[in-house]
Amino acid sequence: MSVMILLVICSILVAGGFLVAFLFATKGGQYDDLGTPPVRMLFEDDVAKSNDNQ
């Protein structure tokens, strides 16, 4: 059963890593503006083409 203990601890550590990443991203302001980035990603070098495809 000791392998279970190892697994549980590992899984929580991995999840904890993601939590820390999320906390850093939030503190760094990644979630401050949820409106502009979805618009900005449309502007690749070739804007005209990406729009024509629609």
Partner: peptide, 10 residues
Amino acid sequence: TRRIYLRLGV
């Protein structure tokens, strides 16, 4: 808003 996101994450 940031603080709510942090609390929500935890």
